[in-house]
Structure formats: structure tokens, C-alpha cells
Design a protein around this nucleic acid. Structure first.
Length: 184
DNA sequence: GCCAACGTTGGC
DNA sequence: GCCAACGTTGGC
């Protein structure tokens, strides 16, 4: 029996959106462009998605995200707020180093290296959309009804996205790569 | 800057 | 386990 089979089962996770035909899951990650924008991601190509301090968002990164998953890149506290590009998950989950760094604004005194509290994945740049989709436009699109990001005060900064919603956003945004990543 | 809508913390 | 106080997110 593989060791994993002996692991204590975690509480049942909330239902995920249906997997796309490819098995790739879809997500949305928020970032304030004044802190880290899609242009920053385009420049560095890949980054550790550090500083997430919300348990739901952490659980998505630690438990559910797989290498190759598609991630919509959302600018919050922006003018206008909205989805501006596409990234992909580029690592397995690992502890967020900033939780151990006393000088970091993300330092968590309750976290230890033996018992890390915060996990992250790396995100890699895929594309900046030719036509970003504002929050206002997301809300106005009947095909995007139910998308978490349009719900008032839906806070987790990493959240699941229905692949159909991702493909719709990608079409409106003029994406060149989403269909190849997600299928459909 | 305002403030609604959260999530977290800690006293009890 | 309850819940008031507090802190944060994020649109506006």
C-alpha cells in the first residue's frame, strides 16, 4: 500500500468546478497592480505566489492546484479592476518562505519550519490579454453568471473558476493560448 | 477615504 | 462553542 493511502483523510473539500476535457483545472488569482502586475509577471516569467494569508486560498494552492492548471490574472484595487491576463501553475505546492522571515510584512510568528502554515505554488506568465475584461464587463455578461469574482465581497485571492467561464473570458479578451491550455 | 462584507482572534 | 472586537479586502 502506498504511503499516501494511509494518510488521514482531510475533511471533504468544497466541490470543484467540473474538470475540463484536458483535466486541467481553472483558477483566478488576484493581485494589486501597484504591488505585482501582469507586466511584472511578464518580465520575471515566473514567481512564487507569496503572501497569501487566507486559509481558503491557501487550501486551493496546497491541495488542489496542479502543474499546468490555467490561472486568470485579476487586477484588484485597479482602474478598472478586471482580468488582464493568463498564467499557469508552474510548481507543486511548497511552504511560503516569507512566513519565516521576521523582516517580511508576511511574517507569521506562529509558523515554524517544522509546521509551516502557509503554502504556495509558482505561477508562470502565459499572456497578457489584448482586451482586458473589466469587473463591470464580467458582471454584465450573462454567460458568466455565478462566477465567484463577480460576487460582492468574495475575498479569497485564489479561487476556482469554471472552465467554461475561463474560456468565455478568454474569448472576450482575445486570448491566444487559453483554448490550447484548457481544451474545449 | 469610505465602508460593506467578510475572516480571525480571543475572552468567557 | 459563542460572539464581540478587530483587522483586512477591495469596490467605489
Amino acid at each position: 500500500m502506498p504511503p499516501a493511502a494511509k494518510a488521514k483523510p482531510r475533511p471533504v473539500a468544497p466541490p470543484l468546478p467540473p474538470a475540463a476535457a484536458s483535466g486541467v483545472r481553472c483558477w483566478l488569482a488576484k493581485s494589486e497592480p501597484s504591488v505585482f502586475s501582469i507586466d511584472d509577471l511578464a518580465r520575471v516569467k515566473k514567481t512564487a505566489w507569496e503572501g497569501v494569508r487566507n486559509y481558503q486560498a491557501r487550501n486551493h494552492m496546497r491541495d488542489d492546484m496542479k502543474i499546468g492548471d490555467a490561472v486568470l490574472f485579476y487586477h484588484s484595487n485597479a482602474t478598472p479592476p478586471g482580468i488582464v491576463g493568463l498564467a499557469r501553475v508552474a510548481s507543486a505546492p511548497y511552504p511560503d518562505a516569507t512566513q519565516f522571515d521576521r523582516k517580511s510584512e508576511y511574517h507569521d510568528p506562529k509558523a515554524t519550519k517544522d509546521a509551516p502554515r502557509w503554502f504556495l505554488v509558482d505561477l508562470a506568465f502565459v499572456e497578457k490579454f489584448p482586451n482586458p475584461v473589466s469587473l463591470e464587463a464580467l458582471r454584465a455578461d450573462p454567460e458568466l453568471t455565478g462566477m465567484l469574482v463577480v460576487k460582492k465581497a468574495h475575498r479569497p485571492s485564489v479561487q476556482p473558476v469554471d472552465p467554461r467561464h475561463l474560456l468565455r473570458v478568454a474569448d472576450v479578451a482575445g486570448s491566444a493560448h487559453a483554448r490550447a491550455m484548457v481544451g474545449g
